[in-house]
Amino acid sequence: EWWGPVFVEAYGATEVGTTCSITSEEWLEHPGSVGRAVPPFTPLVVDDQGEEVPSGTEGRLFFQDSTGRGVVYPGDPAKSAAAHLKPGVFTLGELGHIDRDGYVYIGDRVSDMVVSGGVNLYPAEAEQVLIGHPDVADVACIGVPHREMGEELKALVVLSDPEKRVDESEILGYCLQRLSHHKCPRTVTLVEDLGRTTMGKIDKRKLRSPWWDEPATTSD
Rank of each mutant, 00 (worst) to 15 (best):
G4M: 03
P5D: 10
V6Y: 06
V6F: 06
F7H: 15
E9Q: 14
V16H: 14
G17I: 08
T18S: 09
T19A: 01
C20E: 01
I22T: 05
S24N: 07
S24M: 10
E25L: 15
E26K: 13
E26V: 12
H30L: 14
G32K: 03
G32I: 13
S33F: 13
S33E: 09
V38D: 08
V38L: 15
P39Y: 03
T42M: 02
T42Y: 00
P43D: 14
P43I: 15
P43S: 13
L44Y: 09
L44F: 12
D47V: 13
D47C: 08
E52V: 15
V53S: 12
P54H: 10
G56L: 14
T57G: 07
E58W: 14
G59S: 02
R60G: 00
L61S: 02
F62P: 03
F63C: 06
Q64W: 15
S66C: 12
G68Y: 15
V71M: 04
G75C: 10
G75N: 07
D76P: 05
P77S: 11
P77A: 12
A82I: 10
A83P: 12
L85N: 02
L85V: 13
L85R: 15
K86E: 14
V89S: 08
F90Y: 04
L92A: 05
G93P: 11
I98D: 09
R100T: 13
D101L: 11
D108L: 06
D108A: 01
S111G: 07
V114E: 02
V115P: 04
G118K: 12
V119A: 00
V119Q: 02
Y122M: 00
A124F: 02
A126V: 06
E127G: 02
V129C: 10
V129Y: 01
V129E: 03
L130V: 04
A137V: 06
A137G: 11
A140C: 09
C141H: 05
I142P: 00
I142A: 01
V144R: 00
V144E: 00
R147M: 11
E148Q: 13
M149Y: 07
L153G: 00
A155I: 03
S160T: 14
E163F: 14
K164Q: 08
R165C: 08
E168I: 14
S169Y: 11
Y174E: 06
L176H: 13
L179R: 07
L179V: 00
S180Q: 14
S180V: 11
K183P: 00
K183T: 05
P185G: 04
T187G: 06
T187E: 04
T189D: 08
V191C: 01
G195V: 05
T198F: 11
G200W: 11
G200D: 08
I202P: 06
K204S: 04
R205V: 13
L207M: 05
L207N: 01
R208F: 07
P210S: 09
W212H: 07
W212Y: 04
P215Y: 10
P215W: 09
A216H: 12
T217K: 13
T217G: 10
T218I: 03
S219E: 00
D220H: 04
